[in-house]
Simulated scan of single mutants.
Amino acid sequence: MELRQLQYFLKVAQKEHVTRAAEELHVAQSAVSRQIRLLEQELGVDLFMQKGRNLQLTPVGQLFCKRVESILKDLDRSVSEIHEFLDPERGEIRIGFPHSIGTHLIPAIVAEFRQHYPHVKFRFKQGTYPSLIKDVLGGEVDLAFISPCPDSDDQLTGEVVMTEELFAILPPSHPLAGEKVIRLEQLKEEPFVLFSQGYSLRPIVWQACLKAGFTPQLAFEGGETDTIRGLVAAGMGVSLLPEMALFQTSTLQPAQVKVVEPAVTRTIGLIYRSDGKLPLVARSFRAFLLTYFRMRQNNTPVGS
């Protein structure tokens, strides 16, 4: 069994067509067909079956495809690790994060890191809480910021890097908009604008309201902090957002007020696979991040 056969097989499985696979591989169609045929002969099974003008994986072909994807992905990572070993300052870091920290925190961190490692490349992937965990465990990203930070287990390691306060945001004309501090209970009669299901800020806000003695009245849902802020500023309801999500991005802005009884916070963690297979460049970035947030907490410049 040759590496070329596995690569041809996977491409045909993805394209469901020999001709289209051959075009993308820049080889003759006959070469692809021959290698697939040799692979099936060696395995003693049919990997594809005809479906109209396309090819479809057989059940055993689907099983084999999952294994091949994993093998080729590990091979690509191994080649990258060798290159990074030869020059770890020119590797690529794949990092995931939720939308609420992507506008300001991620650019600031990357800019700081690239002052020390100017040739390192970054690949970013934004996602929800469950999708970020899936991406880390599936090897789609090396590291991911996530909130709240999950407990470590056999597959996943999580480290809290910071704790952030959530503020109430209100329409500018709201009677409480001019207050410096409010109790969360004071918003119990208000309609709430919350993140949709799957976003980690939603259960944090929901649980805080329950702790304050009421169930929030859901008025609108959104998937981005800009949407939440805009709806609140337009008078559609109230909400709670972390401080880093309150940077002004438009002229229409809600009022923000500190919340007590209870104070509402969220943890932001850094997660990665527990098997310790981080590329060298990602290990350097992780070490940098831990120092970055420790210095930030102590109000110390990172390079000092």
Rank of each mutant, 00 (worst) to 15 (best):
L105H: 07
T58S: 03
E165N: 05
I204C: 05
Q29D: 09
V45F: 01
H116K: 14
F64Y: 13
Q50S: 10
D154E: 15
E2F: 03
Q155E: 15
E92V: 15
V60Y: 00
E224V: 00
V32S: 01
P242G: 04
L39K: 02
L241E: 10
Y8P: 00
I271E: 07
A263M: 10
A245Y: 02
P279V: 13
L240N: 10
G102Y: 05
D76M: 00
F247S: 10
S152W: 07
K11Q: 12
G158N: 05
P148N: 08
V302Q: 04
L143F: 03
E261Y: 01
Q62K: 15
Q35G: 00
L270Q: 05
E69R: 14
F192T: 14
G139I: 07
Q186V: 06
V136W: 01
P130Y: 03
L184V: 07
T215H: 07
T291Q: 14
R229L: 12
S70Y: 08
V232T: 02
K180P: 00
L170C: 06
Q217E: 02
Q14F: 08
E2D: 13
H83V: 02
T103V: 13
V264Q: 09
T249H: 06
L187N: 07
V259H: 12
S250W: 09
L241Y: 00
A212M: 08
M49A: 13
L38N: 04
T251H: 06
Y292L: 02
V27N: 00
D135S: 14
R114K: 15
R202V: 11
L72Y: 06
T103Y: 09
E190F: 02
R114W: 09
I82M: 07
I109F: 03
V160W: 09
S173M: 06
D74R: 12
S152A: 08
I93Q: 04
S131L: 06
T58A: 08
G276A: 07
G303K: 15
V136E: 01
F124C: 00
S152P: 12
V12K: 02
S250H: 09
R67F: 08
V160M: 09
L270T: 01
H99K: 08
L105P: 12
K11W: 00
T19Q: 13
F113H: 04
T249C: 04
E159K: 02
T300A: 09
T58Q: 05
G222Q: 04
A31C: 01
W206N: 09
H174P: 11
Q14K: 14
P150G: 05
L156M: 05
R37K: 11
I268L: 14
P59T: 04
A168T: 06
T157V: 14
I133L: 07
W206E: 15
E261D: 15
T291N: 13
D275H: 01
F247D: 07
L166R: 02
G61V: 05
H26W: 05
F192P: 13
E16P: 00
E159F: 01
H17E: 13
I268C: 10
Q41A: 09
